[in-house]
Amino acid sequence: MLRTVLIGDTQADRVVPPSGFTAQLTLFASGAMAFLAVFALALSLASGRLADRWASELARSATLRITAPEDQVAAQTEVALRILRQTPGVARARALSKQEQATLLAPWFGPGLDLDALPVPQLIEVKEDEQGYDAAGLRLRLSAEVPGAVLDDHTRWRKPLVDAANSLRRLGWISILLIGGAMAAMITLAANAALAANAQVIEVLRLVGAHDSYIAGAFVRRFTLRAFIGAGIGVVLGLAGVLLLPEASDEGGFLTGLGFHGFSWLWPLLIPLLGGAVAFAATGLAARRRLKELS
């Protein structure tokens, strides 16, 4: 049957009369669903990128915070750095300068912050190597030798963020599945309406010796092509909508990153094919069920 859909059969297409409103219904439904699918796909891909970025960028870094009386900060920092350099799995460790710490606090306190006037703890940036370090062992040693040190490996807040991004990604894929299901349901309804409207035609075709596959093929071909064309139009409009979204920027945050990058622009091109496949399966099932009811 797939062959007849691709190649077509002019004679078979003529014996089934034009389907009227079901044609417009199928075009509209598949177009609307494809339009929504483009945004769901964009959401899913953007969430995936975000989860990957957070996971990879933050997984191999940690922060050591040294909170100590002012006259002991420098000494404890020195000891902490020595311990870190001796710890297997730590690639590098460096104390942040006052200027860097001021930059980190700028969003809350504004520019030109004088850190000397505030009791701000010293931060040490820790980068781990491929093997990683034993965080529990390091904490134990630090607690013994640097009493004011607190190791924050970001797990506490990184994991919920990555989980949230992954949930968004799953939500995007579930939306795509639901959109596909809704599209199948609508096309099945339209196909059933067309089959019911053409019950007499089908009966005549059966009486003159038409095989079920021939009759079903005429309907399946028609609905598959309509769904494909409708989904194609929906994808074009959806991609135009994505292109019109604001450009991603450092300040833009997550929402401005909603879109496609590089080869991911090719993903939406699969939607018309999937729409056609959904219509092919849905109409085929509806036609076979309907034909079995006839003698």
């Binding site: 059966r206 003159v208 010796g209 095989h211 079920d212 034909l291 079995k292």
Partner: peptide, 10 residues
């Protein structure tokens, strides 16, 4: 079967 019935009707 249904296919054979179609052939019979021819």
């Amino acid at each position: 079967d249904r296919g054979q019935t179609a052939l019979l009707r021819r």
